[in-house]
């Protein structure tokens, strides 16, 4: 049963009551909130996700609630609670939905240690996955959003869940987080882009989300295999250029970009090494999406990419 199968009133009733179960990739969350922006966020972005009516085990019980006290009347704030524990300082009320997405990232990154969790976008075409690790400003999210709008299956815009033994990637498709200029770029890029409310003046500037395709959500249970790793680097005015990247520096960057290397230790390091040995690694410098996208297509078409 999907969230969309609930009436608006039932959905709101559950969110404001005992909680709305949502399956997000391999995780089940139980979400509670009375904040209207968050209700709209869930209705818009999570309608295609599975929910359930039966009692079950939840990976995360998440509540977003107004910070109480007198502050409520002056600068209203919102708390993110994992069960009863508040891992973060509260944020301005209007950032509630962004806080939910960040908070859920944090829940996954600090708990799902059955995977090596790499901070990267991952998309798939023809059964072939491309991993795009990215530091802020690398243009990873913009490229990821553009690929998702051109028919690539979105596995994640934020975290690769890699099985250390088999190297299978478990999808955890979520709204793609866009920042600042990216929001306009993606709006202009495709008339099909469904973009939610913008949260202004967050720690990361203005943030808005792109809705993933229904197919990506429907296929969340189907794992993928890495076909190539591409480190994108957006540089205004640059010529689009794909170059092979040294394995040692790729490994160093993967380690730095992984959320749980310190937990997985040797197993994580060996799995990152084997990931890098299993597929070619590139750097992609680009300034134009329309030039970068065909390169990604070519990588997929080429089954004999030099490893």
């Amino acid at each position: 049963m999907k969230v969309a199968d609930l009436s608006q009133r039932d959905m709101a009733g559950q969110l404001t009551g005992k909680g709305l179960p949502i399956q997000i990739g391999p995780f089940w969350i139980n979400l509670r909130s009375t904040i209207p922006d968050l209700l709209r966020h869930v209705a818009f972005f999570y309608s295609e996700y599975e929910t359930t009516e039966s009692a079950r085990f939840f990976d995360f019980h998440i509540t977003l609630k107004n910070a109480g006290g007198l502050r409520r009347w002056v600068k209203p704030q919102v708390h993110f609670l994992l069960d009863e524990y508040a891992p973060f300082k509260p944020l301005p009320y209007i950032h509630a939905f962004a806080m939910f997405e960040w908070g859920l990232n944090w829940c996954i990154a600090t708990t799902a240690h059955r995977y090596l969790i790499i901070h990267a976008a991952v998309l798939e075409k023809a059964g072939r996955g491309i991993i795009m690790p990215g530091v802020p400003g690398s243009g990873k999210s913009t490229l990821c959003a553009a690929m998702a709008l051109r028919g690539w299956r979105l596995l994640s815009d934020e975290m690769v869940l890699l099985d250390p033994a088999t190297r299978a990637i478990t999808p955890v498709p979520r709204p793609v987080s866009l920042k600042n200029e990216s929001i306009g770029i993606i709006r202009d890029f495709s008339a099909m882009a469904e973009i939610g409310l913008a949260a202004k003046d967050t720690a990361k500037g203005t943030v808005a989300h792109l809705k993933p395709s229904a197919t990506s959500i429907r296929l969340a249970g189907v794992t993928s295999r890495p076909h190539a790793i591409v480190f994108p680097k957006f540089r205004a005015g640059s010529r689009t250029r794909l170059t092979e990247k040294a394995k040692n520096s790729a490994l160093l960057e993967i380690q730095e970009n992984a959320f749980n290397t310190h937990i997985l230790g040797k197993v994580g390091f060996e799995s990152a090494t084997s990931l890098i040995n299993s597929c070619p690694v590139f750097s992609l410098e680009y300034s134009q999406l329309e030039e970068a996208l065909p390169i990604m297509e070519r990588l997929i078409a080429d089954s004999e990419v030099p490893a």
């Binding site: 490994l251 160093l252 380690q255 730095e256 290397t261 230790g265 390091f269 060996e270």
Partner: peptide, 24 residues
């Protein structure tokens, strides 16, 4: 100490479990 070394690359990558650091 965990090492990853590629024959055609000069610098080695070291992961040290105790400190949690990865170094070239």
């Amino acid at each position: 100490f965990c090492w990853s070394i590629w024959p055609d690359e000069e610098e080695a990558v070291l992961f040290h479990q105790g400190s949690g650091d990865t170094l070239m």
